[in-house]
Design a protein around this nucleic acid. Sequence first.
DNA 1: CTTATATTTCTGTCATTACAGAAACCATAA
DNA 2: TTATGGTTTCTGTAATGACAGAAATATAAG
Lengths: 177, 177
Amino acid sequence: MHLTPAMQNFILHWGDMGAKWGTNRSVAQIHALLHIAPEPLSADQICELLNLARSNVSNGLKELQSLGMVKSQRKLGDRRDHFTSVRDMFDLVTTVIKTRREREYLPTLQALEEVQREAETDATPPEVKARIAETLDTMQMFDNWYTDVMALPRSVQMAALKLGGRIARFLPKGKDS
Amino acid sequence: MHLTPAMQNFILHWGDMGAKWGTNRSVAQIHALLHIAPEPLSADQICELLNLARSNVSNGLKELQSLGMVKSQRKLGDRRDHFTSVRDMFDLVTTVIKTRREREYLPTLQALEEVQREAETDATPPEVKARIAETLDTMQMFDNWYTDVMALPRSVQMAALKLGGRIARFLPKGKDS
DNA sequence: CTTATATTTCTGTCATTACAGAAACCATAA
DNA sequence: TTATGGTTTCTGTAATGACAGAAATATAAG
């Protein structure tokens, strides 16, 4: 397998984007490589293609698997694991959002609820308590929306997505546009 | 001004969350402080309350202002700037998404479009070109949805948000639920 | 102009993180 | 058992980012 300049640039830009969104650059690069690779790759091949240390590739793959972005599979007659990115982009986005919500959003939400209770027992001024409540309410509202939407069948989700702004037409009491 | 334990914990948790989402911890803490502060704070007060170096507070405030999350205002009889967080949570979320899209999403999208053109000129295999195209299509689809939805009046956005999953009822051909 | 406040730009330090490579360890196919 | 591939853990190194403090510069009030 060989990386053309376009493929290298894809990997580099994908890596940059990952770095800005909280995952580290190498992990994002490994994912980019698997994402455009026409066939499953072994850890060794990834090392070689991306010039990364074996241990980092191993850990990166573990991370990507725990995020649900990468699956491993065996090849007949080969003892090594081979890895692929989740092929369907919609699945990919969905999965990433799901795990990041569980890892990074819900724990904050829970912690802030705890803070809210704590605020009742110390000298926190009422205005501040009101601000905390407001913040939590909004976070809850978005989370409820997310939970609701994720419970819908995929076909409906896609329909709503493709509908875009024209969704307004179907809303009960949309004031105007 | 004094920070109760609940307020300190709010700031700490908000800071942790920020750190996981690509902004650095101090910036997120400054924002958390301004977000729950009942009145505008000067840079000096922020330094003292959060135990941060003056220069970092200055730069953090600049960053938050450029993200649109914090506004500065003058107080009568005081020469110093005083800072407040955008009060409305919905505005806040909207603004953050808007600037992060412009800074971190659109540039990647553009770069990948460039990569796609480049792939036509080098030896990139057709399957890989297809994967790149798929990726771009999905990114475009989400971005179009975002653009559309942001063009709707706030009242309609809120209605759709509160509607949550019940949106399916109003969709033209939702297969089932 | 002078003075107080703000900001910007440096310097060097410290902590954290990514990283490579080695070694130890585990699992499993032959 | 042996050989191979995989993971884990340890080391030291390099790069990054946060930080304090000082100095230079900018801004605006009196």
